[in-house]
């Protein structure tokens, strides 16, 4: 029985279609086409362009509310739109479902490719960099009212000038970031 199982998975492993669709990464062009297609679908279905990081602010607010806090007086959540979103809850928030889909989809993809691994933390430097970097990205994305998806990708794909301004800033930030990385992480 165990032998049969092993044989089955050995066969799957060398199957041409599994290798092409499940194991190997899609070419960049395929991924770009799929992204474009799905962002059109998302715009058509939800009425809003694709965004990712704004949702995390709502997740934070819902968690804060769940433990007894209140964000009603916070400037960021002061608009009636934001208040309505908070009121309706996570189950009626399309952006939350999409983010959950991204996370579970990424997990499924890595499991199908049998590439799942819990990585070791190598040094304290990594932790410090991850925490500082995460805070800066999250805070910056809220200040800019969008991240590289909402402000950059969706901005440019809806022909907004702001998307290009974001792109230039993103590029400058990436150059500075790589210099810092090479200086402190090599």
């Amino acid at each position: 029985m165990a032998d049969d199982k092993k044989k089955f998975f050995d066969r799957v492993k060398s199957n041409e279609y599994y290798v092409r669709w499940g194991k190997n990464a899609f070419p960049y062009v395929t991924a770009a086409l799929l992204l474009s297609l799905f962002q059109i679908v998302t715009l058509a279905v939800t009425g809003n362009p694709w965004g990712v990081s704004g949702t995390f602010a709502y997740w934070g607010a819902w968690i804060f509310k769940a433990v007894g806090g209140s964000v009603d007086k916070w400037y960021y959540f002061a608009s009636t739109g934001a208040q309505a979103t908070l009121e309706k809850g996570i189950l009626n928030h399309p952006e939350s479902w999409r983010n959950i889909g991204i996370i579970t989809g990424a997990l499924a993809a890595t499991l199908i490719a049998s590439g799942f691994k819990i990585k070791k933390i190598k040094s304290k430097k990594q932790v410090v960099a991850a925490v500082i970097g995460g805070l800066m990205m999250g805070y910056g994305a809220r200040l800019a009212l969008g991240c590289n998806i909402g402000a950059f990708y969706s901005g440019i794909s809806s022909l907004a000038l702001s998307g290009w301004v974001f792109a230039v800033s993103l590029f400058i930030g990436a150059i500075i970031g790589s210099k810092l990385l090479v200086k402190y992480f090599m």
Binding site: S178, L181, V182, F185
Partner: peptide, 12 residues
């Protein structure tokens, strides 16, 4: 380079 994220392995 286990545990290192891009682009650290490449530069190393």
């Amino acid at each position: 380079c286990f545990g290192e994220a891009c682009p650290v392995p490449l530069v190393k």
